[in-house]
Design a protein around this nucleic acid. Structure first.
Length: 877
RNA sequence: GCCCCGGUGGUGGAAUUGGUAGACGCGCCGGAUUCAAAAUCCGGUUCCUUCGGGAGUGUCGGUUCGAGUCCGACCCGGGGCACCA
């Protein structure tokens, strides 16, 4: 093959990227005459280099975007940077630079990389969340939420590293010690900002049912996270009176919080419990409180073993083996409470390690016959096990529903009826009421960090009043003259930044030095894309009304709960503040699988990069030195295990099209994808082959404007059927995210085309038709190659502006169909007949086959089942 | 422990949802081309076989004319949640 006909991937890809850019092919505006389609890929964190997960994500969104564009939609496919966050601060500390410059350098590098992928992105809408023009609007939203009562301040406990002078996330606390300093973590109370997502708990839960184009997995995870339960909350009265003990602690303890249970002298002592099974109240045999329940210490008095018990409860949290079996541990306080329904019945009160203070009321009643944990506990401590639900053959504990027994006025009712009846009775007695509880907590957004969106409030020094920063003073910008020499939050110790005046009185005031959780930025970035240059508001109502909701959102499943739930809350909160937004931000959601790769390690167990090893005589060795290498498990690519491939190397070597094609064709997008060098080479070969094939056959194709012939040869007709069936199938597979199947269908078609030898004008016409269809079909996957081939086919209009081919209905059906003939369920022959053949014809043809006759043997035919177009099954004797 | 998802050739995966299991690709084998190699092209490739056939979709059982697909029990792998009352 001569040099000038060889497909030059590098030049060709650069050429078409330039054409798209110059023609602004993917820039869009609101166009009421066209139906919109909003494709959204989860925005990347600018870590510096793109990884294969990005390539997979944006290839998928690109296929959808290009496919929908070809179908005539006005497609919005934007991109931006989730640019605030802790890694920038860590990098700044390590490299003695500033988070801002580190971040913007990374953005520039990653953008340059993404541009080589040839994505159909409207770059004019690019957004970086660390830009004050971006966070200005969310500061305004924050204040609007505050005014609506959706944002509030409250004292709450944080993990405090006393050496670094900083707050730690739960993940940064290892064995009770700070991950960096190793210092024991203190629990400190700080004033923190919260968003009232709990106001929307019910609505967010109910609306999950309507998210039909979301994966079931994600919907289930969100339901569980919200964790709605209905039950009864009621009070037990103590029949014993614990002596009021002075605090025995070392004095550093915080005063105890107010609680439902009041330790005051004159009122009788009570404890409030929560249950989802008030129907089983007659089966109650104990009451249990969390070890850190406000009443615990008072109830324990100076009984022996209390300190021991508390210590054990705390240690179960960390010792690994104990968690496995997690023995039920109890501490008998010796005190008793009265059963609310049974005169004279007393229940012992325990402290127990399986009761959590932060769920429900931190106290329960135990019904061992109908609860697993209560059963284990009662067995261990020799408490009564009283069945109150008919359980037939089932062994105790029986947790299912049934008819009530041994339960006085509840006897004979179903569990459901009994729950209602028990709640009614509790209400009559004034002991409690039916309540609904959620696991979901309000969203704490305060972070004691520098590289985040400043929370736009000041506190007046004279009286501590919390005052929102007036709109005309927004944004509250991050100072750039910061230092990382001392531990802690640079904003807090900045010499001037936080000192300001009260906008109302002009008195001295202190700025809030906390910044927002970075989930704040990602909760509305899809709205900013709609109107990225709006300086008055984050986005206009008009833009939102035209583009929202997102038609197809694509990203990793790791955001199944937090990001996706916060965004759903955010649209509702914005709506409450007068913005025009849909309730639900994302109509369709697709979660892609992980990209995995083999791990390699040297003799000492150190991880090795795949680029540093090679295979020699069937064994893996290091390239540098040839030392033996062991091949380990295939796991998600991660820097720590070094099993990463730099996609840029792949793109530089094989081109973006090959990388895209391999990623799409090897595995279904929702499953994990195992990266392999061999796979990428296969994709690369196919790209070259398509180009070569067209170059070879080009002169034999009919002219671009040749009239349709009046008739086609048998081969020509067959090819045309395949073409139209493929057009039909590929569209459906793309819509279902079966990109691997779409690619397979295209390859089948191209195999047929390559072996098709045009003999006359009608064949030449059919083959041109086939090539034109093939190129359009493959465009979403390998757009550079497709543009090149399209131009080779003689078109002036670029492919990015070309519509998806129409299918000819009459060609979707074949004129003959080959079906199997079974004898007693085993295939013995195949027959070919018209798809409209009658059952009788099919039966006749099947029985005429010698192989079928042979299989039937002497027993004769008992019955023949004919499923037209599918199968014939002969039942022989 | 509970809740999902998955298990099909050497390998990634197809199978019109109960109707010819293994599409398409990777790898491998054989051949052509080449001084040679690369690239490319052609053919083969589930396993066993006495070449007639037989077996086969994690295991065992069931329903059906017919099961990868439906039902029951179990085994293995991955993910999520977790003393949630």
């Amino acid at each position: 093959m001569s040099e000038n006909t060889r497909y030059n991937i590098k030049d060709t890809e650069a050429k078409w990227q330039k054409v798209w850019d110059e023609r602004k092919s993917f820039e869009v505006t609101e166009d009421p005459s066209k139906e919109k389609y909003y494709v959204l890929a989860m925005l990347p964190y600018p870590s510096g280099r793109i990884h294969v997960g990005h390539v997979r994500n944006y290839t998928l969104s690109d296929v959808v975007a290009r496919y929908r564009k070809a179908q005539g939609y006005n497609v919005l496919n934007p991109m931006g940077w989730d640019a605030l966050g802790l890694p920038a601060e860590n990098a700044a500390m390590e490299r003695n630079t500033l988070p801002k410059s580190w971040t913007y350098e990374n953005i520039a590098q990653m953008k340059a990389q993404l541009l080589t992928m040839g994505l159909a992105i409207d770059w004019s809408r690019e957004v970086a969340t660390c830009d004050p023009d971006y966070y200005k609007h969310e500061q305004k939203m924050f204040i609007e939420f505050y005014k609506k009562g959706l944002a509030y301040r409250k004292e709450s406990v944080v993990n405090w590293d006393p050496v670094d002078n900083t707050v730690l996330a739960n993940e940064q606390v290892v064995d009770g010690k700070g991950w960096r300093t190793g210092a024991p973590v203190e629990r400190r109370k700080l004033n923190q900002w919260f968003f009232k997502i709990t106001d929307y708990a019910d609505e967010l839960l109910e609306a999950i049912d309507g998210l039909e184009r979301w994966p079931d997995k994600v919907r289930t995870m969100q339901r569980n996270w919200i964790g709605k339960s209905q039950g009864a909350q009621f009070t037990f009265n103590f029949t014993t009176s614990p002596s009021c003990h002075p605090e025995r602690s070392e004095g550093s303890q915080k005063p105890q919080e107010d609680s439902s249970a009041s330790p005051q002298n004159d009122k009788p002592l009570t404890v409030e419990v929560y249950t989802t099974r008030p129907d089983t109240l007659f089966g109650a045999s104990f009451v249990a409180l969390a070890a850190d329940h406000p009443l615990a210490k008072q109830l324990a008095g100076d009984k022996d073993g209390f300190d021991d018990f508390i210590q054990k409860c705390q240690s179960t949290g960390t010792s690994e083996e104990a968690i496995e079996k997690a023995d039920k541990l109890g501490f008998d306080t010796g005190h008793k409470v009265a059963h609310p329904f049974i005169e004279g019945r007393e229940l012992p009160v325990y402290l127990a390690n399986f009761i959590l203070m932060d769920y429900g009321t931190g106290a329960i009643f135990g019904c061992p016959a109908h609860d697993e944990r209560d059963f284990a506990f009662a067995t261990k401590y020799g408490l009564d096990i009283l069945p109150v639900v008919e359980h037939g053959e089932e062994e105790l504990p029986y947790v299912g529903p049934g008819k009530m027994i041994n339960s006085d006025f509840l006897d004979g009712l179903t569990s459901e009826e009994a729950i209602a009846a028990a709640i009614k009775k509790l209400e009559e007695l004034g002991a409690g009421q039916g309540v609904t509880k959620f696991r979901l907590r309000d969203w704490g957004v305060s972070r004691q960090r520098y590289w985040g969106c400043p929370i736009p409030f000041v506190y007046r020094e004279s009286d501590g009043a919390c005052i929102p920063v007036p709109e005309d003073q927004l944004p509250v910008e991050l100072p750039e003259d910061i230092d990382y020499d001392a531990p802690g939050n640079p904003l807090d110790r900045h010499p001037t930044w936080k000192y300001t005046t009260c906008p109302e009185t002009g008195e001295p005031a202190i700025r809030e030095t906390d910044t927002c959780d970075t989930f704040f930025e990602s909760s509305w970035y899809f709205l900013r894309y709609l109107d990225p240059n709006n300086t008055e508001r984050g986005f206009s109502d008009e833009a939102s009304k035209y583009w929202m909701a997102v038609d197809q959102y694509i990203g990793g499943v790791e955001h199944a709960v937090l990001h996706l739930l916060y965004s759903r809350f955010f649209t509702r909160a914005l709506k409450a503040c007068g913005y025009a937004v849909t309730d639900e931000p994302f109509d369709g959601l697709f979660t892609q699988g992980m990209v995995t790769h083999t791990t390699f390690a040297d003799e000492d167990g150190n991880w090795l990069f795949p680029v540093d090893v090679e295979q020699k005589d069937g064994n893996w060795v290091t390239i540098d030195g040839g030392k033996p290498v062991t091949q380990g498990a295939v796991v998600k690519m991660s820097k720590s295990k070094k099993n990463v491939i730099d996609p840029q190397d792949i793109i530089d070597t094989y081109g973006a099209d090959a990388a895209r094609l391999f990623i799409l064709s090897d595995s279904p997008p929702d499953r994990d994808l195992e990266w392999s060098e061999a796979g990428i080479e296969g994709a690369w070969k196919y790209i070259n082959k398509l180009h070569r094939s067209l170059m070879e056959i080009k002169d034999k194709l009919a002219a671009k404007d040749a009239p349709a012939p009046s008739a086609f040869s048998d081969e020509g007709s067959k090819l045309r059927r395949t073409v139209h069936q493929t057009i039909d199938a590929v569209g459906r597979e793309i819509e279902d995210f079966h990109m691997n199947k779409a690619v397979a269908k295209i390859r089948e078609l191209s195999n047929d085309m390559v072996s098709f030898d045009p003999k006359d004008d009608s064949d030449a016409y059919a083959l041109r038709e086939a090539w034109e269809a093939l190129v359009v079909l493959i465009n979403p996957m390998v757009p550079h190659l497709a543009e090149e081939l399209w131009a080779e086919l003689g078109h002036d209009q670029i492919l990015a502006d070309t519509n998806w081919p129409e299918t000819d209905e009459s060609l979707l059906e074949n004129d003959t169909v080959t079906i199997g003939v079974q004898v007693n369920g085993k295939v013995r022959a195949t027959i070919t007949l018209s798809p409209n053949a009658s059952k009788e014809e099919a039966e006749e043809l099947a029985l005429a086959d010698p192989n079928v006759q042979k299989a039937i043997g002497g027993g004769g035919v008992k019955k023949v089942i004919v499923v037209p177009g599918r199968i014939v099954n002969v039942v022989a004797g």
